[in-house]
Amino acid sequence: MDNSATTPVDRRVVEAMMPYLTEKFGNPSSVHFYGQEARAAVDRARREVAALINARPNEIVLLSGGTEANNDTVLITVMLANNEIGTVQPIAEIGTLVRELRAGGRKYLWLHTDGVQALGRMPVNVETLGCDLLSMSAHKLHAPQGVGALYVRRSVRLAPQNIGGHQERERRGGTEAVSMIVAFGTAAALAREELDARIAHMRALRARFEAGVTERISDVIFNGDTERRLPHISNVSFRFIEGEGLLINLDMQGVAVSTGSACSSGSLEPSPVIRALGRGDELARGSIRFSIGKDTTDEDIDYVLEVLPRAVENLRRLSPLYQQAIAERACTAV
């Protein structure tokens, strides 16, 4: 239940990348057969990644992942979809605004968006979004960690971050991670093919999950926009308890989740995202992110619904906040 953190590598992706870890080991910059074989594989992958977001292949800079893709200098950056609560931001509206400003003389105003969470979970089309740059990471798309891409609209000129080699049209030097790129390309092709089915599947499972939680556990609040939200994330605040204790209770029963509690991040401040929703400290500390994947099953959801109420009850039983609330409720009932 933590597919927002990373996703299991698809078996078909592993099969596609395998030859590039074994016999097809060429350097794409080499002129001989081995090199050209690798070059062709990288180009194929680049086309698949471009197709997934309706871009042109030469607008795709392949690199090491979402973090690297985010490390450029741009003026406006807005996440396409938030990784904690899944809320989808109105990038297309912002894109229109940016284009208007650009037409009005602000020639170098670019719009960047982080599409890492959105990719493979909603249609991403750089033309309808109107963004100039878009970050992608393969490991949220059932490919391995350590590979990703930055979409760069053809009118945008970027200063390279990795200087030295001439790869990626001078935008990112260094020999390409061919097998990883092949994996990313395969994952992109599969995501494009299966997108509608994956979205429907994740949406249905999340509905099952949220209905189950509502039915079985009191004092819960679902965070994030219920409409404009990625289909795979359910962020829930459990009142009276702290998220990390719940995470550990669930982990001991084989359920992996994430929390916005401060404990996990190592800071004293609980999730700024949940607090920005106006939820207050207690609800921010008690927030848990459940994130579903294309391979999650009904049985997985039912198992979570079986262990979650007990784990919550276990912690509430020893929470002074809960005891206090129970006492107050008993008083008002009388």
Binding site: I241, E242, G245, S261, A262, C263, L318, P320, Q323
Partner: peptide, 11 residues
């Protein structure tokens, strides 16, 4: 007896 609210070490 104890009641506690907070991070795992506190509990």
């Amino acid at each position: 007896r104890f009641l506690a609210y907070g991070c795992p070490p506190t509990l």
